[in-house]
Nucleic acid binder design. Structure first.
Length: 583
RNA sequence: GCGCCCGUAGCUCAGUGGAUAGAGCGCCAGGUUGCGGACCUGGAGGUCGUGGGUUCGAGUCCCGCCGGGCGCGCCA
């Protein structure tokens, strides 16, 4: 389609203010439009021009609000000096000089071919007004391609309470869901648990043994919670188990594991991790999904038998060995992997466009086979995605904390959060890439808690809340009037350096959300929140908000500070962290 | 042995092929008769594990090596 002639209207209204797009996106579109217009004068000799107009924040803010390297990247295909290309594009960018509605105040060309763009005060003011008018949705963006996404995480077996090893998966999954939602996707959070395997029976046998004052089996469970359950086991469960004729360990195990599951759900809710769907392995078998999946693989011609086992030819789709799905033992029981394939079919039947798993990195060997199954079944393997979280070494006083559910030697998630607090823990995990292995020193986390950056950010929020209270006492009210009037007042104070810097910082939130969703990482949000808090604290030092001698300027600054408060609160909200009015 | 992840400031970690590699903590030196000092300003501290390569440009991409983690079950 390279022959298509670009339609170049005499004037392009680049700022038909699309409030759902970040300012960065508006600038990107303006640069795209300018590129369209220079195409005629700079024909491409041959190579395709699939160079996207990437717009970023320059490392040095003195260079401007945004920068692009498109001219550098176009130099090769156009066979022109990058500086020449940059000048041509710059000449075509619509600025406020030619169109007052443009968000761009000026464009500068810098060697060897950078384009530096400066926003107009009016664009900043308009964005600030939007924050004040629609605080709840500030930071939310509209996805270019909205998707219905399923995210499955934690999925620890209900044989014991969550321990600190489950923390990373819980927070990583929850944070991803929050970010994807803010980025315009429809997200469902799911927990998968095994109510089927022999461990459930082992749990039941352990409870029964304690109840009957017998020795706990070798492969049983012996944490405090097991003793609690033995004490609280209702007689009706025991009697029902005996009546049914099956091994009472099963019935007791089902009772115990459901009880544990309820406790897990409560712990997760306490962490701010809510799940929409709880799916058990037995429903996959009972509702025929596992059988359906195996049929599907068979229909694709990807199944064979060997030594009495039924095997999926996953090597056909890039796995390094084929995988057994039905065991060679007499009952031909499906493997755990077979259940997972059934689960995949069941999930796709619910209409998701993307299925995400949050796994510990020890499961990375599993990625290839699940994707292979998806492909064999006719799904797009790229619609199945695994996010692997690296190992967390929990350390206390320099010594690694070992954990084992069976021995009962572990620190529960509830205990950890009791020590350091949900907000501090959330910040800790949110500020690190999922793929990086981290040390979590519990004593250090407690000791440093008052100097943790999360409190720095929360403090900025509380400080603003205090200013707003003070302003009310002093009788200073936010500016009245319509949007245009308010924008005009705000644009007026942006001539001041502290105000301009603060305004430039708050309008970044939608970009930060876009980046977090695209990279599926949240540390950009913690970094941003810290920077915004720093900028605010500097503003606080330099610009007095509540000043009865300057009522108009006070009112305008009040509006700016209120927008900052919303931005801080929403950034923290994306991380599931509270934004206190008082500390 | 094969595969995946990681190696950046004293510590914990960012860095989507671009401009002088950053932040927090810790350390050193300063700052408030005013809206919350849980704050602010400045400073010291780096052969980006290592050796090649690709590129106008490499912490970032490719290959080798060193070091650390994890995985390589008809377990779950």
């Amino acid at each position: 389609m390279r022959g298509r002639r670009p339609v170049a209207p005499a004037t392009i209204r680049v700022m038909t203010p699309d409030s759902s797009a970040s300012l960065r996106e508006q600038v990107r579109q303006a640069i795209d439009a300018a590129r369209q217009r220079v195409r005629a004068e700079l024909p491409a000799p041959g190579e395709p021009l699939d160079v996207p107009s990437e717009v970023e924040r320059p490392a040095d803010p003195a260079r401007g609000d945004f920068a692009t390297t498109v001219a550098l990247k176009l130099a090769r295909p156009l066979r022109r000096p990058p500086l020449e290309i940059a000048k041509a594009i710059a000449a075509q960018i619509v600025t406020t000089a030619s169109d007052p509605d443009s968000p761009i105040a000026s464009v500068e060309v810098a060697a060897p071919g950078f384009l530096n763009v400066r926003l107009s005060d009016r664009a900043l003011a308009v964005a600030a007004v939007r924050i004040l008018r629609e605080p709840q949705t500030w930071g939310h963006v509209v996805a270019a391609h909205p998707e219905h996404v399923n995210v499955e995480f934690v999925s620890a077996n209900p044989t014991g309470p969550l321990h600190i090893g489950n923390a990373r998966g819980a927070f990583t999954g929850d944070l991803l869901c929050r970010v994807l939602t803010a980025a315009g996707h429809k997200v469902e959070r799911e927990y998968y648990f095994n109510d089927f395997g022999s461990q459930v029976k082992n749990l039941g046998a352990s409870v029964a043994a304690i109840r009957c004052k017998e020795e706990i089996p070798e492969d049983g469970y012996r944490g405090d919670y097991v003793y609690d359950m033995a004490r609280e086991l209702p007689a009706s469960v025991l009697e029902g188990a005996e009546r049914s004729g099956e091994d009472p360990a099963w019935a007791i195990g089902r009772w115990a594991s459901e009880r544990v599951r309820v406790g897990i759900e409560a712990s997760l809710e306490h962490l701010g991790c809510h799940f929409d769907v709880w799916r058990s392995e037995s429903t996959l078998h009972n509702d025929g999904w596992v059988g359906k999946a195996i049929e599907g693989l068979r229909a694709a011609g990807d199944v064979y038998e060997e030594d009495g086992a039924v095997i999926f030819r996953s090597t056909r789709y890039g796995d390094d060995k084929d995988r057994v799905i039905l065991r060679s033992t007499g009952d031909a029981a499906p493997t755990y992997f077979a259940a997972d394939i059934g689960y995949l079919v069941e999930k796709f039947s619910r209409g998701y466009e993307r299925i995400i798993f949050i796994w510990g990195e020890d499961h990375h060997g599993y990625v290839a086979r699940v994707k292979a199954a998806a492909q064999s079944l006719g799904f797009d393997r790229d619609h199945v995605q695994m996010i692997l979280t690296a190992w967390v070494r929990f350390v206390r006083d320099g010594k690694e904390v070992a954990m084992s559910k069976r021995s009962g030697e572990f620190i529960t998630l509830d205990e950890l959060l009791g020590e350091i607090g949900v907000d501090a823990a959330r910040w800790f995990f949110a500020s690190r890439a999922a793929s990086s292995g981290i040390d979590f020193d519990i004593e250090l986390a407690k000791k440093q808690s008052s100097e943790n950056p999360v409190y720095y950010v929360q403090y900025a929020h509380a400080r603003i809340a205090s200013i707003l209270r003070k302003a009310e006492e002093a009788g200073i009210k936010p500016p009245a009037g319509g949007d245009a009037e308010l924008a005009g007042m705000l644009a007026g104070i942006l001539r001041g350096a502290p105000e301009a810097e603060l305004a430039r910082q708050i309008v970044r939130l939608p970009e930060v959300v876009e980046d977090a969703a695209a990279s599926e990482e949240t540390h950009g949000i913690t970094t941003y929140a810290t920077e915004l808090a720093t900028t605010f604290h500097a503003f606080y030092r330099d610009a007095r908000v509540v000043d009865p001698d300057e009522p108009e300027r006070s009112a305008a600054r009040l509006a700016l500070v209120a927008a900052t408060k919303t931005t801080l609160a929403n950034a923290l909200g994306l991380l599931g962290i509270s934004a206190p009015e008082l500390m």
